[in-house]
């Protein structure tokens, strides 16, 4: 069962990796975004899926990663080292912050995590001497052929995705994952059976953060210019949990499936209903809550089909 999941995932990575060879630039760009969002969704899955803490801090980690990477790279540090620096910085940030905000539970935690995004955005936009403030920051561009650049960033993002997936599979089969599931279902009882809940939650929070930082730094290098509103998007912080929930929170394949479904839908709506696409995002959220509370993977489609059939036959007999 586990092997099948891993195989499916590898096949999916292979499809995305092959896009530069058969598809146009727009598709390759979408594939990069897809890989990036998958990294964010898998990251969120650790805290929101396994642990059941509804974090909205993804945009904060992503944005800080953007800026940490850009600032370090701006200072003349090689790109790859800048990415690592951003990763370490965001991981430390999450560890310190997690020890504080994870004392909150449920709605309070959710609101606290939204506040983190806003505070980060305000600090970054006010600290002009370091971050360029509202003017944003330029990042040195790669002087390669555009197609090579796109291919390079696609493979970097896919590499990150492979890393986060490997961590997910490991956590899922390890006592850490078991403990996190215990916390999700009943934190007091988890404490009582000997789970060090504080430590486990902080680990989950750091896992949910550090690769968002890397993805942010890679994104900054890719697009070449960042500003506070683009890096700390409140919409991003909503989108990522929705993607994970759409696929199935707390599962190994859910984030990949959810992200793929969401990005494809989003591209479709962007292309066809330019001024309506945010309203449509809202509709997807509502639909999700009412009809697929467990996500695509946790829904028993057999039961749905049976129910539909049952209704039909009942209608026929009436």
């Amino acid at each position: 069962m586990r092997a099948a999941k891993v195989l499916l995932f590898v096949a999916w990575i292979a499809v995305l990796a092959a896009t530069p060879f058969f598809a146009d630039n727009n598709i390759v760009r979408t594939a990069i975004m897809l890989a990036m969002y998958s990294v964010l969704a898998y990251s969120w899955n650790f805290i929101g899926g396994f642990t059941g803490y509804p974090s909205f801090a993804t945009a904060a980690f992503f944005g800080l990663g953007c800026y940490a990477g850009a600032i370090v790279e701006h200072a003349g540090v090689p790109m790859a080292l800048a990415w690592i620096a951003a990763t370490v910085f965001v991981a430390l940030f999450a560890a310190v912050l997690g020890a504080i905000v994870l004392r909150l539970r449920g709605h309070y935690f959710a609101i606290g995590s939204i506040a983190i995004v806003e505070v980060c955005r305000l600090v970054v936009s006010s600290w002009s001497s370091l971050t360029g403030g509202g003017n944003g920051l330029n990042v040195p561009l790669l002087m390669w052929h555009p197609n090579t650049v796109a291919m390079f960033f696609l493979y970097v993002m896919l590499g990150l995705l492979a890393i986060v997936f490997a961590i997910t599979v490991f956590v899922d089969n390890h006592r850490l994952g078991f403990g996190l599931k215990c916390i999700r279902q009943n934190e007091d009882a988890a404490d009582m059976v000997g789970v060090n809940t504080t430590r486990y939650k902080v680990i989950a929070f750091v896992l949910s953060a550090f690769l968002c930082g890397t993805a942010g730094a890679v994104y900054a290098s890719w697009v070449g210019y960042i500003d506070p509103t683009d890096s700390f998007q409140i919409l991003l912080t909503v989108k990522v949990p929705v993607m994970t929930l759409l696929g199935g929170a707390g599962t190994v394949l859910g984030p990949a499936i959810g992200t793929a479904a969401f990005v494809v839908l989003e591209e479709f709506f962007w292309a066809n209903f330019l001024s309506w696409n945010r309203a449509i995002l809202g509709l997807i959220i509502v639909f999700l809550i009412f009809f697929l509370p467990g996500g695509l993977l946790n829904t028993s489609f057999r039961r749905v089909v049976r129910r539909l059939r049952g209704r039909e036959s009942a209608g026929a007999s009436a």
Binding site: R175, G179, V193
Partner: peptide, 9 residues
């Protein structure tokens, strides 16, 4: 029960 054995035991 396994949770008890894994973390408490």
């Amino acid at each position: 029960v396994a949770a008890g054995a894994l973390f408490g035991g």
